[in-house]
């Protein structure tokens, strides 16, 4: 690090390593893109820009996979899950961190059980319960359980944010006679905005990318999330590589766009949150 030449040298090797890793990360996507632009029903090579890019494949894939219906459905499910889940997790996180709620320890412990629980462990009874509630096949069948399943992570996330929040202002407000709601609204919530928005993005991705729940709980493929519908699409168009890749890219796009749009915010929040 001391000699200038070694710094330059290091800089280059750093860049080489990073570029190699970046290539590895995007290569499958690039391969899909070039395949998506190849003529339909052809056998495209793994990675080569087609001579005559068939951008129309994306339009065809949109129709073939019934993506209008799937996107609408995904959006409805996201709208059903994310705001409610974020609100509940925020409230519970605040309650557990800042208010001495009776039984708080127990609640903590209960949530801890769910933190590492694989979704598969619940899917069987969930199916029968949802059915006896008469919700099977409706979007509620995915929305309600998903909210429940997101709670452990969400509550711990918000709780740790509120735990580290500054207390001086809160103390002052308490002395002024503010009630917990006022403190929450006027002091704590504004401070927690970064954590809340990161959680919103995380919940969005978890919902949008969800595959198992819609697959099992919603029979009509057009009412599932796009990820759930993609599986059915793969079964039907397995040989039409171009169409399959185009459809997959369209389905990936929202996750990617949301991530790229919020990435600054997102990566930082996630890195902080993960090791906090």
């Amino acid at each position: 690090m001391s000699a200038g030449s070694s710094t330059v040298h290091q800089g280059i090797s750093r860049a080489v390593i990073l570029v190699a890793l970046m290539l590895f990360a995007v290569l499958p996507l690039l391969s899909m893109l070039t395949a998506a632009l190849a003529p339909q029903n052809s056998t495209p090579p793994g990675l080569a820009w087609p001579e005559d890019p068939q951008w129309n494949n994306f339009v065809d894939a949109w129709t073939a996979a019934n993506l209008s219906a799937l996107f609408r459905s995904s959006v409805l499910i996201v709208l059903g899950v994310v705001p409610a889940a974020v609100a509940m997790a925020t409230a519970a996180g605040y309650g557990l961190a800042q208010l001495n709620i009776p039984g708080g320890k127990l609640v903590n412990a209960l949530l801890l059980v769910g933190l590492t629980l694989p979704f598969e462990a619940l899917i069987t009874p969930l199916y029968y319960n949802i059915r006896s509630m008469g919700l099977l096949g409706t979007r509620w069948a995915v929305i309600l359980p998903l909210i429940g399943l997101l709670m452990p992570f969400g509550v711990f996330w918000m709780r740790s944010s509120f735990l580290t929040a500054e207390t001086a202002l809160t103390e002052a407000a308490k002395i002024d006679g503010a009630n917990p709601w006022q403190i929450f609204r006027q002091i704590q919530l504004p401070l927690a905005v970064p954590a809340v928005s990161a959680l919103t993005i995380l919940f969005f991705l978890a919902t949008w990318n969800q595959y198992l729940l819609p697959l099992v709980l919603i029979d009509d493929p057009t009412m599932r999330t796009v990820a759930g519908g993609l599986g059915a699409f793969q079964g039907e168009h397995g040989t039409n590589i171009a169409l399959l890749c185009a459809g997959s890219l369209l389905i990936i796009a929202p996750s990617l766009i949301v991530f790229l749009f919020f990435q600054r915010h997102f990566v930082r929040a996630l890195l902080q949150g993960a090791v906090k």
Partner: peptide, 12 residues
């Protein structure tokens, strides 16, 4: 504060 989260979590 905790009730909604806890109910959803318990039921599902």
């Amino acid at each position: 504060w905790v009730a909604p989260a806890l109910i959803m979590y318990s039921v599902f």
